[in-house]
């Protein structure tokens, strides 16, 4: 895979020594490897290692894949605030990868639900999709991630120009729908769900705070558009 350095880094890297350029690359690979670990771990447990998947294996696959999806989505949403707080520009390159990992785990989650849990029982699937709010919001969140993943390429960015940024603000909605999905399927113990809700609220509040403080002209946005 090609790592695309921003022009600034590339210029610096060439002259001022390769050492500066190396650590973002190492970081990128390290984060990707870490991000694939849960998939390997789930796969290994499915094959029987690490004590297997427990008494209700399909439920375990379903909840674990969903959990990893929301975690990577929250991580993807942390990149921009983290860069802003630390000034570490190279971590921005992790954002797309973390988003794609969230999409990957969400897709696994969706397919396990469709093909393993409900075993392509279309009557049940359609009933769930049309009458169960927690299923509907989860499905909507996945559809958004699908759209964002499909337009995550450099080509799509070039093609959509300024609209790309607008389109990808849908990730905030995906995060909200994902958390609502978890809240709505919780029976009584809201500890885990509140953790996700708190993390998401913090990340969105930071953005809102910065957006309100920054004059529109500097953000290069037409005045009639709302804050992102």
């Amino acid at each position: 895979m090609v790592i695309r350095a921003s022009p600034a880094t590339r210029v610096r890297g060439v002259r001022r020594g390769a050492r500066d350029q190396r650590w973002p690359r190492i970081l990128w690979w390290a984060v990707l490897s870490a991000g694939l670990m849960p998939a390997l771990w789930l796969g290994a447990r499915t094959a029987g290692a690490f004590g297997g998947l427990g008494v209700n294996p399909i439920e375990t696959l379903l909840t674990d894949s969903g959990t990893f999806s929301i975690i990577f989505l929250l991580l993807a949403l942390s990149v921009t605030p983290l860069r802003r707080l630390t000034g570490l520009a190279p971590i921005l390159r992790l954002r797309r990868m973390l988003g794609l990992l969230a999409f990957g785990y969400a897709t696994a989650h969706f397919l396990i639900w469709l093909g393993v849990d409900l075993f392509f029982d279309w009557q049940l699937i359609i009933e769930d999709l049309t009458t169960r709010p927690f299923v509907m919001v989860g499905f909507a969140a996945w559809m958004i991630l699908l759209l964002l993943a499909a337009t995550s390429t450099r080509g799509a960015m070039t093609l959509l120009k300024r609209n790309w940024t607008r389109l990808h603000r849908l990730v905030y909605l995906a995060g909200i729908l994902g958390v609502v999905h978890i809240v709505w399927l919780t029976r009584a113990d809201y500890r885990e769900a509140s953790l996700y809700a708190l993390a998401l609220a913090t990340l969105l509040a930071m953005r809102l705070f910065w957006a309100l403080r920054t004059p529109r002209k500097i953000r290069g946005e037409p005045a009639r558009n709302g804050a992102g």
Binding site: V55, N56, I58, D117, F119, D121, L124, T131, F134, L185
Partner: peptide, 19 residues
């Protein structure tokens, strides 16, 4: 009679693959 949030039409018998 569905639970307001999920269906009660099917169940997974622990140890079985299909609902």
């Amino acid at each position: 009679v569905a639970h307001p949030r999920w269906s009660q039409r099917t169940e997974r018998r622990i140890g079985e693959f299909r609902r």
